[in-house]
Nucleic acid binder design. Structure first.
Lengths: 132, 132
DNA sequence: CACTTATTTAGAACCATTATAAACTGGTTG
DNA sequence: CAACCAGTTTATAATGGTTCTAAATAAGTG
């Protein structure tokens, strides 16, 4: 199983549940955005056994901490995650409430001129809201 | 009272509560960021009468819809608002969980090259996360 | 003042997320 | 292989920010 090493290498035991969630998250042609609820549904559709909601939360948070998932900062009642962890930005379609990837080449380089002493820039995230 | 016209002009009745909240939000030297809870506390400190939590929510949402407040997209369990409604961006200090304004001149111009047909760009928001 | 409509209010309801504590599992060691 | 321990899963309860509800109150109008 190809995700066993990935998990072991990051100090996570390769449990049945985690491996199944890996399949759903990472064994796809394209990366995608999801909420926990949407992921739960995807898991139900793809896997025959049930995985507890608490485990889905635990796993997603563990994967995020290890850098396998990214949270997308957006004002919504639900938290959005992204399986695309490369540097990139997002459109957010206000009407359809859909996220769309912006490749880095779609956004000119962003130059942050201000510095805060003692702090490093960890990430720069751009959210472009779309309306009709 | 200087906020009466502001409210009337946007179709909001200038009630006692709204005027008091205007005082707390807009009668300051500097703009600021807040959550509903922080605003509630500020109101308690500045005003002698009590304003119901539901009214605070109603008012903040009404003001946001009218463009007197902006929501700041950030992943947090609480929603952050900004009394600075000009175009600008934010640092987010992950350790202290504090927002810091970035003037537009602190961030080079942002050029979004991708277009989505039938959609207009409503806003471009940059969140720069800071770590130690 | 009478009337209509908007607003305020306390409290209940909602719902995503987190905490809990018991059962279970993976990995390791003797 | 058995015994053990730490990590993990699980159902369920608890939490907490936000929204809803329905009744009371206040603002605007004629």
């Amino acid at each position: 199983m190809k995700y066993i090493d990935k998990l072991r290498n990051s100090g996570l035991r390769p449990t049945k549940q985690r491996l199944q969630i890996c399949e759903v998250l990472f064994n796809n042609e394209k990366t995608f955005h999801f909420t926990i609820n949407e992921l739960e549904q995807k898991i139900k559709d793809r896997i025959d056994t049930k995985i507890s909601l608490a485990t889905v939360y635990n796993t997603v948070h563990a994967f995020e901490k290890k850098g396998y998932l990214k949270q997308i900062p957006i004002n919504s009642n639900q938290t959005y995650f992204d399986t695309n962890v490369t540097d990139h930005h997002h459109f957010y379609d206000l009407k359809d409430q859909k996220l769309i990837d912006l490749e880095n080449s779609d956004v000119g380089p962003i130059n942050i001129k201000k510095k805060i002493s003692g702090k490093r820039i960890k990430s720069v995230e751009v959210l472009v809201k779309l309306e009709d």
